[in-house]
Simulated assay, not measured.
Amino acid sequence: MKLALPERPQGNYRGRFAPSPSGLLHFGSLVTALASYLHAKQNHGQWLVRIEDIDPPREQAGASEAILKTLETYGLYWDEQVLYQSQQSNYYLDALSQLKAEHLSYYCQCTRAQIKQRGGIYDGHCKLLNHSKHNSAIRYINHYKINQFNDLFQGRVEIDNKLASEDCILFRKDGLFAYQLAVVVDDIYQQISHIIRGCDLLEPSARQLSLFATFGHQPPVLGHIPLAITEQGYKLSKQNKAPAINNLRPQSVLIQALQFLGQSVETGLEDLSPEEIVAWSVKNFQFTAIPKQQEIVINHSIF
């Protein structure tokens, strides 16, 4: 099938940073934002910001505005109007309708507990049961089952074949759109050519590549950077209540982010404005220096 959204012009670099408003920006988020911004600007491209606000129960009041303010404080300015996923529902519904019309989706009533009892990975149990939409999620039929891809920074990535073959959920039982559907539809809608993000999304990338193929659109080039891990072994994330970065000393945090990404930093850089540090980074950042490991332990004093 061909999802009725614009094709991406050849040669036009369009990157994006897509935080969720479930909390404020932490150090790991800044590293991702900085890397994606610098990659776009070194390639003379556009850098977009998308707020992934499709899960209201998990969102923190005022977080969207605070995230945007923090990006500006750190000298990271986006090129187009911010896109909010909460305003994209019609596009998601159109995608679901097209999948249904092409017989590429079905209703599923399996619970997480039931899936866990059957091995932990969904096995297509409901595919031929013809459930009604009442109390059902919507899964798509994964014909492509992509289990490997080339990553800009991690090299050849292979995903567990059973996981890559799963018919993942696109619409949840609670009436919310699933992340996998929203992110792929929005990447097509915004004509994104490159995605630079954290290694926690390596496995979901395989599912998204299969969904891009199902929708008949060329996928973006993928680059996954290492995750910041605390000394206790926890990923810096909003779910793990990672502390927000300090907006009062953006120069120091920007330099720490550059060092985390394997960069040599000039003496005196801390005396520049955030905008000047970012401009210096556009000229001097070496993407070949990004560590290839998927996780890096950081000292808690970095905050």
Rank of each mutant, 00 (worst) to 15 (best):
E203H: 01
R8I: 06
E295G: 05
I121M: 08
E295C: 11
A63I: 00
Q98W: 14
Q239C: 06
S105L: 04
H194Q: 11
D167R: 07
L38N: 04
I229W: 10
W78A: 01
Y91M: 05
R156L: 14
N90M: 12
F27I: 08
R16H: 00
L30Y: 07
I296S: 02
A289Y: 09
Q294N: 13
I245K: 04
L24V: 00
L96Y: 10
Q239S: 15
N284Q: 14
E158G: 03
E270S: 13
A63D: 00
Q154S: 12
I298S: 10
I115D: 06
H44R: 14
D79M: 01
Y234P: 02
L99E: 11
Q87T: 12
M1S: 11
E65M: 00
G23W: 02
L211C: 08
F303R: 12
S264W: 11
Q42L: 05
D167Y: 04
L236E: 12
F149G: 06
K2R: 15
P274H: 08
E158K: 14
Y107P: 00
I169K: 05
C199T: 13
T267A: 15
Q87L: 13
L93W: 14
L34H: 03
R50G: 01
S29P: 00
A257Y: 07
G11I: 09
N135K: 14
K238A: 04
G198D: 06
D79V: 00
G198E: 05
K41S: 03
L128Y: 10
L181S: 03
S210C: 05
R58S: 07
S205Q: 11
S64W: 00
D160F: 05
Y84F: 15
Y140W: 15
F260W: 09
L211Y: 02
K292H: 11
G120T: 08
Q239W: 11
I192L: 04
I169H: 06
S105H: 05
P220H: 07
V282S: 01
A66E: 13
K241G: 01
D94M: 14
Q191N: 08
L83A: 10
V82K: 10
Y91W: 15
E231S: 13
Y189A: 07
Q88S: 12
A40W: 00
